Simulated scan of single mutants.
Amino acid sequence: MSQKIFLYWGSGSPPCWRIQLVLEEKNFKYEQKLLSFERQEHKSEEIMKLNIL
């Protein structure tokens, strides 16, 4: 059984780029959502709930 991969990422973040490069190199299918650091989207309630898991 394969698990769905969902990547939340922020433009200008080298750690995010590393993950994207690996996903692309390995030809993994994934969905993505670009978060704005400027608008503090990475600190939104939705994202913070994910970080607790």
Rank of each mutant, 00 (worst) to 15 (best):
E38C: 00
C16F: 02
N51Q: 08
E31N: 08
E46R: 11
F28C: 12
V22T: 10
M48H: 13
N51P: 01
E24Q: 11
C16P: 07
P15Y: 13
C16D: 06
F6D: 04
Q32C: 02
I19Y: 03
P14R: 01
S11Y: 04
W17K: 06
S2C: 09
S11W: 03
G12A: 05
K49G: 09
N27W: 03
S2A: 15
K43T: 05
K49H: 14
F6A: 04
Y8Q: 00
E24V: 09
S2E: 14
K43E: 12
S36F: 02
L50E: 09
M1D: 14
S36M: 09
V22W: 11
S36R: 07
E46H: 12
Q20P: 01
P14I: 00
L35W: 06
F28D: 04
E46W: 10
M48C: 15
N51I: 09
Q32P: 01
L7R: 05
S36Y: 03
F37V: 10
K4F: 05
R18G: 04
P14D: 02
G10H: 04
V22E: 09
W17Y: 10
K33H: 10
I5R: 09
R39E: 14
F6P: 03
S13A: 07
F6I: 09
C16A: 14
S13H: 03
H42V: 00
E38K: 04
N51H: 07
F6G: 03
R18D: 02
Q20M: 08
G10V: 13
L21F: 06
R39D: 11
L50W: 13
N51S: 08
I52V: 15
E25M: 08
P15G: 12
S13K: 01
S44N: 02
E31A: 02
Q40A: 12
C16G: 07
R18H: 10
H42T: 00
M1T: 14
S13F: 01
Q20R: 13
H42E: 01
L35F: 08
I5E: 06
N51A: 11
